[in-house]
Design a protein around this nucleic acid. Structure first.
Length: 879
RNA sequence: GGAGAUAUAGCUCAGUUGGUCAGAGCGCUGCGUUCACAUCGCAGAGGUCGUUGGUUCGAGCCCAACUAUCUCUACCA
């Protein structure tokens, strides 16, 4: 059973090979075992033409951890993969590509454009999927879906028709956000507001009767072209007499009224507001209340329309300049002041959005939002961390109707048909035979497509086969957890919740695990424009997928942003290497068949100690994972492996391993293999590759670690006494090393170490541990005894619990220094004892604190007193 | 305008039901290359847990106020 493993772990040699093995053996396939509980996560579908970035890496790692653990716990598991068509993002890329060829969308036409889009999709969908595989993602790839594949498109139409028939989808000419660059409407969620420096132009609007002016202020003077009123607050004394009078709109000459409306804030600006119903959401509302004309002054590309008179055809910003110039020249401009204001921009292209009135399709939200709000308030839907529930609720409770139509080509075309004769709208999967209104047989389909998020909202059930009652759907819906970034709570999470509730009657998932953003080392968001993005694939290539995964889950709290550093990945890589070498050590020494189980009576205190520690770890790791505390779990497993297992247990058993085969050696080997393979299992969800590789050597009879039984706490491995005793020995060793370092004793200098204790049981434990106490404490001889026989007065003493360790260092010792050291120790112990004395004499503490806490403090005090006594005795001997 | 988050060792961050919780990694100091590992080992220095009050026998941990930074959200022309 000799194993020849390299002294360094090489992820490249392992990862692709193991991933292939997993795939070929069908380990990722969704379980269908009737007797088992089910567990399902749907992947947040990456953009089909996108590339893997750190956000994906984090998101996918978290999901894979949950999925792999559940699989080991014996669930039927489905991690449902797929990709999103990302309507606007993909279309932008295509348009850009066309532009490089000197073409435009319009020139090639819808048919040709879609042909290219599908070709593009075919070309790139594999790229993102193979990148996810590089991370180790254990999705059931055989079930990969795409938001525009047949089934999902059908689900989209189904929902659209359903909502339309229910009156929850309607078409209306309302004011919407328009992107002049992409030439499409946008939902409110797609508008990003940013503060931009601008100006406040004060302009005079003269009364028609020549009796003076009203002064208004605006940040967008070009919209003056569409003004149809000036509004003042009804309470405003200053303008009381003006209401109802007519004004002449400068440059345009149109007569517009002065109206009064509550919306106007008396305190802001001049207290008089120009009203442009066609280009401002507020003005739109005011316009409706006062029956004002809506004059659209912009074309779809952001140039001034024919309604703009001499400015027609100019770009909106050129027009702004020209209008300001003209106002100035004609004496209407009163003043200009710098003014910071909030500008809405398109989140994709960052072009300033223009409010416009356009006929668009909307989802009526108030009714849909109610159950989605209730689900969170009742606790049925839970956010981890909880604070995100507040953010969700705040948005849901103030939600407005969702504009779902887009003037794009790549996406789900709206299933609405218009009668060529009378314009009647018929919504359905196909055009009707004849118009229900006029009987005409000619129809044309709505040109627009749906917001990408309309289909994403159905993802948790459309991917499982809905609206068909498939086996998959029945088994795995509702899903268990959703894992995603807080940046898409509104876009996606909220919409899936109300969609699931409305169409399936169930919440699409119970738990929502939110994570933050991976930032660069300076805390900046990674972005293309800054060029500060880190490519996860390069990181994997350099350090391995396990190292990247481990880095992304450790050292940051759920829901918080994190910074990426190479140094962090190096640390994870080093951990993988440490584990590799520890395993190599175990395998090197594995020369025999080991028994399945071991009688506790055959184990030493050290063996029982590590089993106990592992037992506790298994319990804590499972509990932490159940609470989505993945980082804490990873930390606990790492420190167990590195500190307890490598630094202590392996060192403790070495002498036993180097002995000839015997029962004691077997016990050590059994414990090593048992604990290590258990630790590998706990680590597997986090570091799937290296754990599988090592497990295959340690447990060659098992096919894979992926379906190895997840460790659970077992009472048979609970050894509280040994845990305490071995921890005491660790303390003794540390104390001895510390003293030797302080005394600057060379590691080459071996000594005798004498443990003195009048407790027979403690003596036994230390005698048993002598085989490792000696090498770890640099001793050539270890003596355990009840009295001071043979201990010179000048020996260095280390006070321990129920025991003192002595090291006779002979002439190496400077007695004055040793006295000083012990004096300091005495001072420290006296301080601790005094502190505890005060605490324990406080009746408030002893009376109100739990008994266990009080007892703990008492025991601590007793212990310090013992140690103090030992120090004092030694000081007496030295003088 | 509203809401939320963060403020803990030189740096980046953990610390989840208030009682060994003052921690980790990196960095730093000293020592170390006997057969798992220098992608390592051993020992160590370093913080009155943003400020001020409060609740409590006891508070990084709960409450209030304040300061600083960040984020989300909102129609103030």
């Amino acid at each position: 059973m000799a194993h020849e493993l390299a002294s360094k772990y090489d992820p490249k040699e392992v990862e692709d090979r193991l991933y292939r093995k997993w795939e070929e053996n069908g380990y990722f396939k969704a379980g269908e075992d009737e007797g088992k509980p089910n567990y399902c996560i749907v992947i947040p579908p990456p953009n089909v033409t996108g590339q893997l970035h750190m956000g994906h890496a984090l998101d996918e790692t978290l999901q894979d951890i949950l999925i792999r653990q559940k699989r080991m716990q014996g669930y039927n598991v489905l991690w449902q993969p797929g990709t999103d068509h990302a309507s606007i993002a993909t279309e932008m890329k295509l348009v850009q590509q066309l532009a490089e060829d000197g073409l435009t969308k319009g020139e090639i036409g819808r048919g040709e454009f879609l042909k290219r889009a599908w070709a593009w999709k075919e070309k790139y969908e594999n790229r993102i999927i193979s990148q996810l595989k590089k991370l180790g993602a254990s999705c059931d790839w055989s079930k990969t879906r795409f938001t525009m594949d047949e089934g999902l498109s059908n689900a989209v139409e189904e929902v659209f028709i359903y909502l339309y028939n229910k009156g929850l989808i309607y078409k209306s000419a309302k004011i919407i956000n328009w992107c002049p660059e992409c030439k499409t409407s946008l939902s409110d969620a797609e508008v990003e507001y940013e503060d931009q420096p601008g100006f406040f132009w004060h302009i005079r609007y003269p009364y028609k009767d020549g009796s003076g002016y009203v002064e208004i202020a605006t940040t967008r003077p070009e919209t003056l072209l569409g003004d149809t009123a000036v509004a003042v607050n009804p309470e405003d004394e200053r303008y009381k007499d003006c209401v109802g009078k007519m004004l002449i709109l400068p440059l345009v000459g149109r007569e517009i009224p002065v109206i009064e409306d509550e919306y106007v804030d008396k305190e802001f600006g001049t207290g008089a507001v120009k009203i442009t119903p066609a280009h401002d959401p507020n003005d739109f509302e005011v316009g409706l209340r006062h029956n004002l004309e809506q004059i659209c002054i912009l074309n779809d590309d952001g140039t001034i329309s024919d309604n703009g008179g001499k400015y027609a055809g100019m770009d909106r910003y050129e027009a702004r300049k020209a209008i300001v110039e003209d106002l100035k020249e004609q004496g209407f401009l009163v003043s200009v002041e710098p003014h910071e204001h909030n500008v809405g921009t398109h989140d994709r292209c960052h072009t300033t959005v223009e409010p416009m009135i356009k006929p668009q399709w909307f989802v009526k939200m108030d009714e849909l939002a109610k159950p989605a709000i209730e689900a969170v308030k009742s606790g049925e839907l839970r956010f981890y961390p909880e604070r995100y529930a507040k953010i969700y609720l705040n948005w849901m409770e103030n939600i407005r109707d969702w504009c779902i139509s887009r003037q794009l080509w790549w996406g789900h075309r709206i299933p609405a048909y218009y009668c060529d004769e009378c314009g009647e709208i018929v919504v359905g999967h196909n055009a009707p035979e004849r118009c229900p209104k006029c009987g005409c047989t000619h129809f044309h389909q709505d040109e627009d497509v749906l917001d990408t998020w309309f289909s994403s909202a159905l993802w948790p059930f459309s991917t499982l086969g809905w609206p068909e009652e498939t086996e998959l759907y029945k088994r795995y819906y509702p899903t268990n957890a959703l894992v995603t970034g807080y940046d898409i709570i509104f876009f996606w999470v909220a919409r899936m919740v109300f969609s699931g509730l409305e169409y399936t009657g169930k919440l699409p998932f119970k738990d929502v695990l939110m994570h933050g953003i991976v930032r660069d080392s300076q805390g900046r968001k990674m972005s293309k424009s800054l060029g500060n993005g880190i490519d996860p694939l390069e990181v994997i290539d350099k350090y391995g997928a396990d190292a990247l995964r481990f880095t992304l889950v450790t050292g940051n709290a759920p829901g918080n942003d994190m910074r990426y550093y190479d140094e962090k990945v190096e640390a994870s890589r080093n951990f993988a290497n440490k584990l590799w070498n520890a395993s190599r050590f175990v395998l090197m020494n594995l020369k025999e068949e080991l028994p399945e189980t071991m009688d506790a009576a055959d184990l030493t205190a050290a063996d029982r100690w590590i089993l106990s520690k592992f037992n506790t770890l298994a319990k804590e790791a499972t509990e932490a994972l159940d609470k989505y505390e993945l980082g804490i779990t990873a930390d606990a497993v790492e420190s167990f492996i590195w500190e307890e297992f490598c630094d202590w247990y392996i060192e403790m058993v070495k002498t036993r391993l180097y002995a000839e085969p015997c029962k004691d050696r077997t016990a050590a080997m059994w414990t090593l293999v048992t604990v290590l393979s258990g630790a590998l299992k706990l680590l597997h969800p986090f570091m799937p590759f290296i754990t599988e590789e090592l497990y295959s050597y340690l447990r060659p009879q098992e096919e894979t670690i992926m379906y190895a039984k997840w460790p659970v706490y077992q009472e048979a491995w609970n050894f509280p006494h040994e845990t305490e005793e071995v921890d005491a020995m660790k303390e003794a060793i540390r104390g001895i090393r510390d003293v030797r370092t302080q005394m600057q004793v060379s590691p080459k200098q071996k000594t005798t170490v004498i443990f003195v204790s009048d407790d027979a049981h403690t003596q036994d434990i230390f005698r048993e541990g002598a085989s490792f106490l000696a090498p770890l404490a640099f001793a050539e001889e270890v003596r355990v005894q009840a009295d001071m026989t043979g201990v010179e007065a000048t020996a260095v003493s280390i006070p321990l619990h129920k025991m003192t360790a002595f090291i006779p260092l002979e002439q190496l010792i400077d007695l004055d220094k040793e006295r000083a050291r012990l004096g300091k120790e005495k001072e420290r112990l006296e301080g601790e004892i005094g502190r505890l004395e005060k605490k324990l004499s406080n009746p408030g503490f002893t009376g109100k604190a739990p008994q266990a806490v009080v007892d703990g403090e008492r025991a601590k005090q007793t212990r310090y007193k013992e140690q103090l006594h030992q120090v004092e005795e030694q000081l007496a001997r030295l003088s």
